[in-house]
Write a protein that binds this DNA or RNA. Structure first.
Lengths: 359, 359
DNA sequence: GTGAAAGCGCTAACAA
DNA sequence: TTGTTAGCGCTTTCAC
């Protein structure tokens, strides 16, 4: 295997200096057209490929941004990453993905690894297993810019991109009320997560606005998983006055609840309505299809990258205000919350799935 | 923002040489215990963090392996990546993921980017949009080891990890025959993919072994997508003698077919049986649950990494034989192919989902 | 057990 | 427009 060609090889072959080759290859303005063409031709001939490791060491910039997500198996994050990649690649950045597997330990490790790799910036969504935020605060104090998305740490001066979880939850609950449901339950996420708190508050607000009582028993703690969805649903059904509808903190929780309802022979949506959150892909595949709230994943990824890009380019200058981007939540009501008609069968909402909250 | 501490800073603070610090930090044997402890203490105090860019430039090794997959949204690939990460991290390697989005262009770009980043090796599964394999052959000729998994290029001297697609397809088809189906259709993948060819051949073999005729009309070309699953299924139903069962090249295709069957009011599995391939997560969520063939994703990831690790450590030495690892395919039969009983209702297979082919 | 010094491949400031 | 030179932070040989 022949050694990789370097700019020195090109320089030697062309009897010019390495500096000239470097400039020619990087589109430096002060280089003659003929030299540039000769260099490019020789580069091709020698199968030259830039060594980004060396460039990075010299320039101090790697052109890589690191993304830490809880899990790529959650469609939502995979989709946000797509948005990040699209914008990042368009601007010549590469994206390095690290999965925290929802644990604090891996999230810390991820930051450490990315800092060692000298990424130019970090995008992060907090793992549900994180209870101590020191590593985030330490990262913020380091020289590397960091932007949080979706699962963020509030009031700590981070730039963030989220969707309007409160409003999304409010609309979802409002929708259940409008379909005639009276006893609407909620299964939460871990309440140390900002998104879980906001969605719980949105749920409460909708009840209040409609003059419905808030019943503590109808709120069960969940954990963003199919399993806790099932368990929480079981507890709800065991109540002396069980609910007739559920707003779940996210789709996997809703899925677990629906599985249990099916096992118990309770028909969704004829007898019971369900709305989730996140608009995971599987929601369109299951029966009945799952009502949810879309989180504008691609846009979230784009916005997060743009904020980070900003921080990178202004790095060094201090800045006293943190930017908080909040995207609209988009209801996607499907079969699982279709309006029950008098005959007991459900009226299905039209097939187009996305309805803007307020046009 | 203070500049990052370097080993020179530690050396200066301790009045030793940079070489000593480097050795102490890297566990070099010829370093006294006291020096090591002093260095480590100072490193902590100065919040030192190794600059991997610089190490890599000097050592020629980045400790990073690149993985190119068609799409992280396909559960199968996400899960293989998990297997890769688990083994790689355990051995001190980091994993950089690149999504080709099923296009040849992005796959080429991915290889280029990873080579520029000087990864120590590449793991790749071929995008379905790839028709020209020059970039793979060129990569193979380069100094960087490359191992293919799942969607591989055969007979080109690559080390590969696959599952036994032929046998998996044969078992799936055999299973449909055993449940009493007579006219079994198959929707293929793009036939330039090795996996699609192998699964088609497994399907044919099962028919042959059971003395069933091979009917060309029952084989429809697909494209690994829900949409082509629907279209192909429509064509199958339009036949003068439509099938009573389907073996689909993979689960998304099977899902599309099942969606159409449901719309047409054809009951699965009472009137029609379906088996997919890949054991995607959604298969357990839909109604009826989807029979499939598990591909041992975690193991595949581990094996692929181990092969690559081998190539990395023996790099330089020529080797004349390519290694081809083939993992067992594991049938996972669920409701969508449950045995129809005489009464017309289906007999459900037991809930445990994985059955080893032959114990 | 430790120091000195060279150099990985590239970029950029300074000269010419 | 091009050449020269220094140096990014680290590892590693060769001394002692």
């Amino acid at each position: 295997m022949p050694r990789n060609a370097t700019i020195t090889d090109i320089a030697a072959a062309l009897k010019v200096s390495a500096g000239t080759v470097s400039r020619a290859l990087n589109g430096h303005p002060a280089i003659s057209k003929t030299t540039r063409q000769k260099v490019e031709a020789m580069a091709t001939q020698l199968n030259y490929r830039v060594n980004r490791v060396a460039s990075s060491l010299r320039s101090g910039q790697t052109g890589i941004i690191g993304v830490i997500i809880p899990s790529a198996a959650i469609n939502f994050f995979g989709s946000v990453v797509h948005g990040i990649e699209a914008s990042a690649n368009a601007q010549g950045y590469q994206v390095l993905i690290y999965q925290s597997d929802e644990t604090e330990e891996r999230e810390r490790k991820g930051i450490e690894v990315l800092l060692q790799a000298r990424v130019d910036g970090i995008l992060l969504s907090i793992a549900k297993g994180v209870h101590n935020y020191d590593h985030l605060l330490a990262a913020k104090r380091s020289a590397v810019p960091i932007v949080l998305f979706d699962r963020v740490l509030e009031d700590a001066g981070f730039d963030t991109v989220t969707i309007n979880d409160f409003e999304g939850a409010r609309m979802a609950t409002q929708h259940l009320i409008e379909t005639g449901r009276q006893r609407i339950a909620h299964i939460t996420g871990p309440l140390h997560l900002s998104i879980a708190k906001a969605r719980l508050n949105g749920y409460k607000a909708a009840l209040r606005e409609n003059g419905l009582p808030f019943d503590k028993k109808l709120v069960q703690l969940g954990d963003i998983s199919i399993e806790t969805g099932r368990h929480a649903m079981q507890k709800l059904l065991d109540l002396s006055a069980p609910p007739d509808a559920l707003f779940a903190v996210e789709d996997f929780t809703a899925l677990g609840a629906m599985q249990l309802l099916k096992e118990k022979g309770i028909d969704v949506p004829a007898e019971f309505s369900v709305v989730g959150f996140a608009n995971e892909a599987f929601g369109q595949y299951i029966t009945p299809t799952l009502s949810s709230v879309d989180q504008q994943t691609i846009k979230m990824g784009e916005q997060a990258f743009l904020l980070l890009k900003d921080l990178i380019s202004t790095s060094g200058k201090k800045k006293e205000t943190a930017v908080q981007k909040v995207l609209d939540a988009l209801p996607v009501f499907r079969e699982s919350s279709a309006l029950p008609s008098k005959s007991g069968t459900a009226r299905i909402f039209p097939l187009q799935t996305k309805r803007k909250s307020r046009p």
